[in-house]
C-alpha cells in the first residue's frame, strides 16, 4: 500500500491528519518520535500507535529538548520531534539548544496552524507575525523548510528520513480540528514500552 495522498482542506490549507499518516507510512524501527501535547499526539496516534512513539500529555515546551536527549542517546536512530506551534513557542529555548548541539539525527517538524487548538483556537504568535522557520535558521538548524503546498508536503517524508540534522520544518496546516484520537496516558507505561522495544528490559 502506498502512503496516503496529502490533501488540502476546504480552506486551502494542508490536512494535518493525512499529513502525519503520510509521514508515518511504512515507518521503520529506526524512527523514534516524541510528540508535543495536544493535536500532534492525536495525529500521531491516529496514524497508528507504535512502541517508539512517546506522547506528551503535558510538559509543554518539552518536546524538542526531550528529543535532544533521545537523539544524543540513540545516535544511530532518527529522532523526530513532532509538535505544534503553540508547544514549540513555549520552548523556543529548546530550539536554541538543538541548534547549538548539532545532532545530525534530530528533526523537528512543527504542525503550524497559528492556533492554540486545545484552549479555544486563540491565535498563536505565528499568526501574529512570528516566523518559526526564520527563527530556526537563526538558532543554528542546518536544514530548514517551510511547507505550504501538498507537493512540498509529499517530499517531507523522504526529507525527514535522510536530511542531515539538526533539521526543522514548519508545515502550514489547516486550523480545522481533526478530532481527538487519544493515545495511552500512562507515562510510565509509555516510557517502559519505548525502552523495552529498544532492548532495555524493565528493571
Amino acid at each position: 500500500m502506498s502512503a496516503p495522498e496529502i490533501i488540502k482542506k476546504s480552506d486551502g490549507l494542508i490536512d494535518r491528519r493525512i499529513l502525519v499518516a503520510n509521514l508515518m507510512h511504512d515507518r521503520s524501527d529506526d524512527l523514534l518520535v516524541v510528540a508535543g501535547l495536544g493535536s500532534p499526539c492525536y495525529d500521531l496516534m491516529a496514524a497508528g500507535d507504535h512502541p517508539l512513539n512517546f506522547y506528551l500529555w503535558g510538559a509543554m515546551g518539552g518536546a524538542v529538548p526531550m528529543a535532544i536527549g533521545l537523539a544524543a542517546a540513540q545516535p544511530t536512530k532518527r529522532v523526530l520531534a513532532l509538535t505544534g506551534d503553540g508547544e514549540v513557542l513555549m520552548g523556543l529555548t529548546g530550539l536554541a539548544a538543538a541548534g547549538a548541539e548539532g545532532l545530525d539525527n534530530l528533526v523537528v517538524i512543527v504542525l503550524d496552524n497559528g492556533r492554540y487548538g486545545e484552549t479555544g483556537q486563540q491565535l498563536t504568535h505565528t499568526a501574529r507575525g512570528v516566523d518559526l522557520v526564520q527563527t530556526a535558521v537563526g538558532l543554528g538548524f542546518k536544514s530548514t523548510r517551510r511547507i505550504d503546498s501538498t507537493e512540498e508536503a509529499t517530499e517531507l517524508r523522504d526529507w525527514m528520513q535522510s536530511v542531515q540534522g539538526p533539521a526543522f520544518a514548519a508545515v502550514h496546516i489547516s486550523p480545522e480540528a481533526a478530532g481527538m484520537s487519544l493515545p495511552p496516558q500512562d507515562g510510565a507505561f509509555l516510557k517502559t514500552r519505548f525502552r523495552e522495544y529498544l532492548g532495555m528490559p524493565p528493571r
Partner: peptide
C-alpha cells in the same frame, strides 16, 4: 559522557527524560 548546555533549566529536565528514554543515564 556528553555535556549538553541548555539556556534554561526546564530544557535540561526534558533533555534528561529523553536521555533515559534512549537508555542513557543523566
Amino acid at each position: 559522557m556528553r555535556a549538553i548546555s541548555v539556556t534554561t533549566e526546564e530544557d535540561a529536565v526534558a533533555c534528561l527524560a529523553g536521555a533515559w528514554l534512549g537508555g542513557d543515564k543523566g
